[in-house]
Design a binder for these strands. Structure first.
Lengths: 215, 215
DNA sequence: TGTCAACAGATTGTCGACAATCCCGGCGAC
DNA sequence: GTCGCCGGGATTGTCGACAATCTGTTGACA
């Protein structure tokens, strides 16, 4: 190899910028309605405007921002009604992910990532702050999608997840009981009970949705 | 208004380029594995390279093309196994679209677009070629998504639809019997039978999936 | 005082050019 | 005959600059 390592060029790609923006929204650093000015993002990530523009296009496709011609991008607010609609989709996708992953584990797929995610969830079930719960939940979703090995499901779930995790309603999903529920879903998947895992996964999402419907 | 009409600026946007490429793949004009060279697309659509690059980014996010650094984009092939996995997701989404649309119609939503789509499907059920069937099916999907009024569902369904429609397996879905099945789904939605419409919608997708599983 | 028009600043949309990288052919050495 | 090396051509990645557009403000006028 002529080149020693790709680390010699740590340039940030468009996808990484998009991910960083999403995490900033999740953490409350950026809030809905706020404008995303290209020049600011260039300074923030130390990259050119082209990469920033591509990142904004990706976020637009994911429904995170809206881009109006000649006026730039701003973070979309999500109403409670829209969040409920999104969770209707998430319920189906998460259920399918749990069912497929359970079947794949029965078929001998590698379950180590899911085991780690479940352990992480149980660790923050009792004494966990919001950030660690979000981190653990992200791990669980990622592990399920990875094990399910369904590219289309992974993509849809990723976008739906991104869509709901936005600041406004994040607080409604950061309770310790939810960490326990999610860990239970992971355990059912690990034990290979596909149907029960799907039911538990859908019930988890449905409970969050009901909490939004009746505040 | 100082500006008479937006028609004075008929510049093609990135989304339109992406849509045109997808339709070209559907129609067989472009086939999986083919490279998409930026300069060629610029000449084809008469636009700059930036718009083409944004379109390719959108197609990458939708899973239609793969972009490898410094080597450009090429159309992804989809194996029968991947098509089956995609249809697992489509089955859920299409079922939800049918159920939600039926409920919204009961609640008084405008059904004219769906009525037109059903009429179009019935017209090409008997003596319809592949192109008109594809057109009618696109209309039905669009009408259901519009009536369901769930942005997240619309986005997911749109991407999943794009993903499956690619050339290789298009032929497997162009039979007259399918037009009749789809028309039946539309009629059930129009009559407001949410549960039955969902069952019919899922059965429609499942049948296609089974045909792929057992050739 | 209220309203409208023009101006200034800021931001986005687009184009062209250059550097970096990769594929593909030939060429020489073993 | 096969392997490794290396230019040539083609293509992508990135940067800078300019034009087009929008927002907010200022000022004149009824």
């Amino acid at each position: 190899m002529t080149r020693p390592a790709p680390a010699s060029k740590p340039r940030i790609s468009a996808s990484e910028i998009a991910g960083a923006i999403v995490r900033a929204i999740e953490s409350g650093e950026l809030h809905p309605g706020e404008r995303l000015v290209e020049a600011d993002l260039c300074l923030r990530f130390g990259t050119g405007r082209q990469a920033v523009r591509e990142a904004l296009q990706q976020l637009k496709a994911a429904g995170v921002v809206e881009i109006v011609p000649n006026r730039g991008a701003h973070i979309l607010a999500i109403s409670a009604e829209q969040a409920i609609l999104t969770l209707e989709v998430t319920e189906l996708l998460f259920g399918l992910a749990a069912r497929s992953a359970a079947r794949r584990i029965v078929a001998g797929a590698d379950a180590s990532s899911l085991e780690r995610a479940v352990a992480e969830l149980e660790a923050c079930r009792d004494a966990g702050d919001a950030a660690s719960y979000m981190h653990a939940r992200r791990h669980l979703f990622g592990a399920l999608a990875h094990i399910a090995a369904n590219p289309e499901l992974t993509r849809s779930l990723d976008q739906a997840r991104v869509h709901v995790m936005r600041g406004q309603f994040g607080f409604a999903m950061m309770r310790g009981e939810h960490a326990g529920e999610l860990a239970q879903v992971g355990k059912l998947v690990l034990s290979g009970h596909a149907a029960e895992a799907e039911v538990a996964a859908r019930a988890y999402v449905e409970r969050i949705r009901h909490r939004l419907e009746t505040p």
